[in-house]
């Protein structure tokens, strides 16, 4: 089960209703949840992948609804290896808020973190408000990769995570060795019985 070389934390952001949860559910579980119910009690989903023979594990974090009133906690971004910014191609305001999301990101992450821009709901050809090339050039301007997806029709969803994982894997040794060397994760309570013994 825990047979993997690297674990990456991937974090989703973007306006409410752009389909962040649907993307993750589609990718990790192959389902497209119908309706708008917020997922209660779920922090992140896990997906195991194999890239060029290396087994990796993605921990994909959702916003827990805290994007609604812009109250995402800083710790949500801590130790993230990659960020996926999502907007809805059929919803201009969700695209217009991107600069604000980028500003927020700049405060919390360093330049090593991989950022990818995703225009979701590309199946809605009639309702489309953001043409492909507008999204693409925005991404280029801000040095991000760009993909259009449809969680509903499962188009390109795999590709986001394949793309991310390949880049992350390349960086992996560097990030892991410099950043996470001796921080204490409280889960690993291995030495719990070793107390201050006498001579």
């Amino acid at each position: 089960m825990d047979d993997y070389k690297f674990l990456f934390k991937v974090v989703l952001i973007g306006e409410a209703g752009v389909g962040k949860t649907c993307l993750v559910r589609r990718f990790c579980q192959g389902v497209f949840p119908i309706g708008q119910a917020a997922t209660i009690g779920v922090d992140f989903l896990i997906k195991n992948l194999e890239i060029n023979g290396d087994k990796i594990k993605l921990q994909i974090w959702d916003t827990a609804g805290q994007e609604r009133f812009r109250t995402i906690t800083q710790s949500y971004y801590r130790s993230a290896n990659a960020i996926i910014i999502v907007y809805d191609v059929s919803n201009q305001p969700s695209f217009d808020r991107l600069p604000e999301w980028l500003r927020e990101l700049k405060q919390h992450i360093n330049e090593k973190v991989v950022v990818i821009l995703v225009g979701n709901k590309c199946d809605l050809t009639e309702g489309r408000e953001i043409p492909y090339h507008i999204g693409e050039s925005f991404a280029q301007r801000h040095n991000m990769k760009f993909i259009e997806t449809s969680a509903k029709e499962s188009a390109n969803v795999e590709q986001i995570f394949q793309e991310l994982s390949t880049t992350l894997l390349k960086q992996a040794n560097q990030i892991f060795e410099t950043n996470r060397k001796d921080t204490k994760t409280l889960k690993n309570d291995i030495q719990s019985n070793k107390i201050y013994n006498c001579c």
Binding site: F69, T71, S75
Partner: peptide, 19 residues
């Protein structure tokens, strides 16, 4: 960081946040 961690947990279980 600590209050925020508990707030995240609270949000995951449906609490609404407004700052």
């Amino acid at each position: 960081e600590l209050p925020q961690c508990f707030c995240r947990m609270s949000a995951v279980f449906g609490a609404i946040y407004y700052l």
